[in-house]
Simulated scan of single mutants.
Amino acid sequence: MPISSGTIKFISSLRRKKMRQNYHNFTAEGHRIVAELLAQDAYPVKHIYALENWAAEHGAGLTVPLTVVTPRELGRITQLTTPNQVLALCDIPAIPTDLPGGIAEGWSLYLDGIQSPSNLGALLRIADWFGFQHVIGGPGTADLYNSKTIQASMGSFLRVSYRTGELSEITTAFPELVTFGADLDGEDIFSVNAPTRGVLVIGSEGPGIREEARSQVQRWVTIPRAAERQAESLNAAVAAGILAGQLVNGVR
């Protein structure tokens, strides 16, 4: 059965956060992400829309409905600049706001007002790469189900536990964890003897970490800039990658 104009309109509407929240649906595109979605249970896949060549190669044995679309139809429902071969329509589960006890067992990443969906996706990849099991989005952080977040995460949103909340909730529930914050005036990260568990706080590139969250940070760390260089700051995801790598793998 061909895709209907109503379905095209509905899928296109999921570009807006309000519509994703109203219908509890989001889209993910590309063979790799769709294949990972089909292999897990946390995010139920409702329907697959794919070009004929993708359907011929990967459609056999699918347990979810598949609609073959034309390149023009895929272009109308895609949220990417250049459409991929396949798009999955998925259910959004409720994002838990309670804090799991597992936070106390390793490193977690707290994102304070990360407004860029692409940065959020990249930060999820960084957390996944360095073994951070939990990512907590603070107030002002972009929507996890924005298409740019999903694509930039390269599937890491499936492998990292994500929830929303205030930093104070973590520091109150787990006072034994050391909370590290990124700040230009902090300790040189390459000279810090880090513990084996804790929380790394990353703020937005403009205003940085909010005052409400700053009051919860115990240790400030920075990435030293090369002598005589004038760059004001690093991209939030780039900085998080360097800090996370050093906190997890640095000499203790």
Rank of each mutant, 00 (worst) to 15 (best):
V160Y: 11
A226F: 12
P175C: 08
E228W: 11
Q216N: 13
L184W: 00
G138Q: 07
E228Y: 13
G198T: 10
G165F: 05
S215G: 09
P175N: 08
R214G: 00
S147R: 06
F174Q: 06
P175H: 10
P139I: 12
V217G: 01
A239Q: 04
T222N: 12
Y145N: 08
F174R: 10
P207W: 00
G198Y: 09
F157I: 13
I189G: 00
E169T: 12
L144M: 13
S204P: 07
E169Y: 08
F157C: 07
P175F: 09
S147E: 10
G186H: 02
V201E: 03
E232R: 14
D188V: 02
G203Y: 00
V238R: 07
R159N: 15
G181S: 05
V221T: 06
S204Q: 10
A237H: 05
L167T: 07
E212W: 06
Y162C: 12
N193A: 13
M154V: 10
E176N: 12
W220Q: 07
I189W: 02
D183R: 01
L234S: 03
G186E: 01
P175W: 11
F190Q: 08
G181N: 03
V178D: 07
R210Q: 11
I223L: 12
N146D: 14
P207N: 11
R225W: 09
T196P: 01
Y145T: 10
D188H: 03
V238P: 03
T141R: 01
M154Y: 09
A173E: 14
S204A: 14
L158S: 09
D143G: 05
R219E: 12
E232G: 12
S161M: 11
E176D: 15
V178K: 13
